Simulated assay, not measured.
Amino acid sequence: MSVRLGDAVVEQRYHVAGRGPVCVAHPGGPGIGWEYLRVPHLERSLTMVYIEPVGTGASGRLDDPQDYTIATYGHFLHQVIGHLGLDTVALLGHSHGGFVAQRYALDHPGHLSGLVLYDTSPVTGEDFWAAAVAGMQDFTRLHVREHPEVAAFADALTTRPEVEDDEEATAILRTIAPAYFHDYYGREADFAPGRAALRMYAAPAWGQEPAFDVRGDLPGLSVPTLVVAGADDFICGPRWARMIHERVPAAELCILQRTGHLGHIEHPGEFAALVADFLTD
């Protein structure tokens, strides 16, 4: 579908799979290809609509990379939801996609029947990124003896926004991907194919906007909300999940044990049952 943004018309792709009530899923990054977020187990009970965000894959590109902002992603998300022609849909946002989902739910609650905030945070800024780097350094200390390559992971995490080439961005993401799992090296045969299929697009990292912070707005969020986080997620783990849970009225919280940033890949059945039960109840 085509979406107007200012004077430009930009292609917005999305992908539909499954059966049952509709759930729109927004991936993270910003700039990670949508495929990593596909959850076949969820498609057994939900019609999943996977957003392919602008700046990635076959969706269009913005003329000015600084325009890749949460407001921009929210604008395109709103157009897709309107295009579906339904009274309400559920919305799942992962990581940076959770930032988009929080803002969208606050701005357009009447369009949503339910909200899943998955491995995300209500705030970014210096404290958030310092905690992420510290978490990556903990991962490095744990694994560097057997896997010396992890010594460079923390630097790779902080240099990603400076990358301009899609292939370079993809190479960095694939390099540091083990840190996003609870036990990548123990289950490398299971996870290596998915790691090799990851795609990262560079331009979205150049968006310009203030640090994200909806903590003061969340008490007004009226959409039924499930907050999910991996207990061992170094970047959007339990600290940030609890921060959301404490502020959103009647939100439910689930911390997945022995899980990193990608619970839908590490424990697909458990993750799908949790989300499907919440959204179809």
Rank of each mutant, 00 (worst) to 15 (best):
1 M>I: 00
1 M>N: 01
4 R>W: 10
5 L>V: 02
8 A>Q: 15
11 E>R: 07
12 Q>A: 10
12 Q>C: 12
14 Y>Q: 12
16 V>N: 11
20 G>M: 14
21 P>C: 13
22 V>G: 01
22 V>H: 02
23 C>H: 02
23 C>S: 02
28 G>R: 09
30 P>W: 09
31 G>P: 12
32 I>W: 03
33 G>T: 05
34 W>S: 08
35 E>S: 15
37 L>H: 12
42 L>C: 14
48 M>K: 01
50 Y>G: 01
52 E>T: 02
52 E>R: 00
52 E>C: 09
54 V>W: 08
55 G>H: 04
56 T>R: 02
56 T>W: 07
57 G>R: 03
65 P>H: 14
66 Q>G: 07
67 D>A: 12
67 D>W: 06
69 T>L: 15
71 A>H: 13
72 T>I: 13
72 T>H: 14
73 Y>C: 03
82 G>A: 08
83 H>G: 04
83 H>W: 10
84 L>T: 00
86 L>T: 03
87 D>Y: 09
88 T>K: 10
91 L>K: 02
95 S>R: 02
96 H>E: 07
98 G>H: 07
100 V>P: 01
102 Q>R: 08
105 A>C: 09
110 G>F: 08
115 L>W: 01
115 L>E: 00
115 L>Y: 01
116 V>E: 04
118 Y>A: 08
119 D>I: 05
122 P>T: 13
127 D>E: 08
132 A>V: 07
135 G>H: 00
137 Q>D: 03
137 Q>K: 06
137 Q>M: 04
142 L>E: 14
143 H>D: 10
147 H>M: 15
149 E>Y: 06
149 E>C: 03
150 V>A: 09
152 A>P: 07
153 F>T: 08
159 T>H: 03
161 P>M: 00
168 E>S: 06
168 E>T: 13
170 T>G: 01
170 T>M: 02
172 I>K: 02
172 I>S: 10
176 I>F: 06
176 I>L: 11
178 P>D: 13
178 P>G: 06
179 A>W: 04
182 H>F: 12
185 Y>M: 03
188 E>G: 06
189 A>Q: 15
190 D>C: 12
196 A>P: 03
198 L>F: 01
201 Y>V: 05
202 A>Q: 10
203 A>K: 15
206 W>H: 15
209 E>A: 12
209 E>F: 01
210 P>N: 01
210 P>A: 07
217 D>P: 05
222 S>R: 01
223 V>L: 13
225 T>A: 11
226 L>W: 00
226 L>D: 09
230 G>K: 02
231 A>Q: 13
233 D>T: 09
233 D>P: 08
234 F>C: 00
234 F>T: 05
235 I>C: 04
235 I>D: 03
236 C>W: 13
236 C>N: 05
238 P>Y: 15
241 A>F: 06
241 A>H: 11
244 I>E: 09
245 H>M: 10
252 E>K: 02
254 C>I: 12
257 Q>E: 13
261 H>D: 02
261 H>W: 08
262 L>A: 04
263 G>S: 05
263 G>W: 02
265 I>D: 04
265 I>L: 06
269 G>E: 15
269 G>I: 10
271 F>Y: 14
273 A>D: 13
273 A>Q: 12
276 A>D: 03
278 F>D: 02
